[in-house]
């Protein structure tokens, strides 16, 4: 659903350009929220397995900090790999 706002066709609906623009803006907000949620689902896939051993009566503080660190380190890893990959591609291009 990455481009559902760009191909929204309001022709024939009687929408004024202002209404169409307003709708596009609100859809973009919802799209961003959906992307955020999808990313949280992804983190959960990785971090649940890493941090939760046996589900207990409550999440202890160690598990909580493991989850927080897991998110941050996953993002760090993403950035680090992206940067290094960009360097490799740049070197390869010359």
């Amino acid at each position: 659903m990455s481009d559902f706002d760009s191909n929204l066709d309001l022709a024939g609906t009687g929408a004024s350009p202002a209404e169409a623009a307003e709708l596009q803006r609100m859809l973009a907000v919802e799209q961003q929220k959906a992307q955020f949620t999808a990313q949280v689902h992804n983190f959960m896939d990785v971090c649940w397995d890493k941090c939760i051993d046996r589900p207990g009566n409550k999440l202890d503080s160690r598990t909580e900090s493991c989850l927080v660190s897991c998110v941050d380190r996953f993002i760090d890893t993403t950035l680090s790999i992206t940067n290094r990959f960009a360097q490799i591609v740049q070197k390869g291009a010359h």
Binding site: W48, I52, G56, L67
Partner: peptide
Amino acid sequence: RYMDAWNIVSRAY
């Protein structure tokens, strides 16, 4: 616990 963890991960992100 999954829902607890979901909320923690969401806040951390």
